[in-house]
């Protein structure tokens, strides 16, 4: 009797703990679909496929805006003056130091392709405004130059570059190449 009396509480505790543990695992597993459903669905992911853009109709000095994965992409047909300004800047002293050559494709220096989202808090900067021949963000006054680099204002980083490649001299594909 004594042995049984001491053994019993242990077995009982184990049963309770096991039940509670299995229940907790189940509750956690039930949560995962509820969390997962908020991630991009299959059609959204598939719609993030690359976008082809024809550059032929973009005039020198013109900036056009296209969309890739719901993000605005600026394509800037730079004039020789814009290119020179961008290349001559003392890039090592900039907040986010990057030479112009790291921001364009070699042999295609005429074309600047950047994601048109201010790196401060996500507004779209206005083209051809500000003091650096580039963009001016109306939200908090960040200014970008003709290479999309941050020159003045609160933004911490240069305008980001999307993945893209030249299919021909006048045609680019923005986005990762599909797995196919």
């Amino acid at each position: 009797m004594t042995a049984a009396a001491t053994a019993e509480p242990t077995r009982r505790d184990f049963l309770y703990i096991a039940t509670a543990a299995v229940g907790s695992v189940g509750a956690a597993a039930a949560l995962s679909p509820l969390v997962s459903q908020m991630n991009p669905d299959a059609s959204t992911i598939a719609a993030g496929a690359p976008v082809d853009v024809d550059l032929g109709s973009i005039q020198p000095g013109q900036i056009i805006q296209v969309f890739w994965r719901s993000k605005p992409i600026f394509i800037f047909n730079r004039t020789p003056k814009d290119i020179k300004l961008a290349q001559d800047a003392d890039w090592q002293s900039l907040r986010d130091p990057q030479p112009d050559s790291a921001r364009v494709k070699q042999g295609h220096e005429q074309w600047l392709v950047v994601i048109g989202i201010c790196t401060h808090l996500g507004c779209i900067p206005l083209p051809h405004q500000g003091g650096f021949d580039g963009w001016f963000c109306p939200c908090h006054g960040s200014q970008y130059d003709s290479s999309g680099r941050i020159r003045q204002g609160p933004a911490p980083l240069n305008l980001q570059l999307p993945p893209y490649e030249f299919l021909s001299a006048s045609r680019i594909r923005i986005g990762e190449n599909s797995q196919a």
């Binding site: 679909p33 997962s36 459903q37 908020m38 669905d41």
Partner: peptide, 30 residues
């Protein structure tokens, strides 16, 4: 959760439910 993915508009309601069934993560389960 379903209300996050459903569209209460006659042209989209049926398709949005089907999109829940097909595309939304675990949408079919929910």
């Amino acid at each position: 959760v379903l209300a996050m993915h459903y569209t209460p508009q006659v042209d989209f309601a049926f398709d949005s439910v089907e999109s829940i069934m097909r595309d939304v993560n675990y949408g079919w389960l929910l």
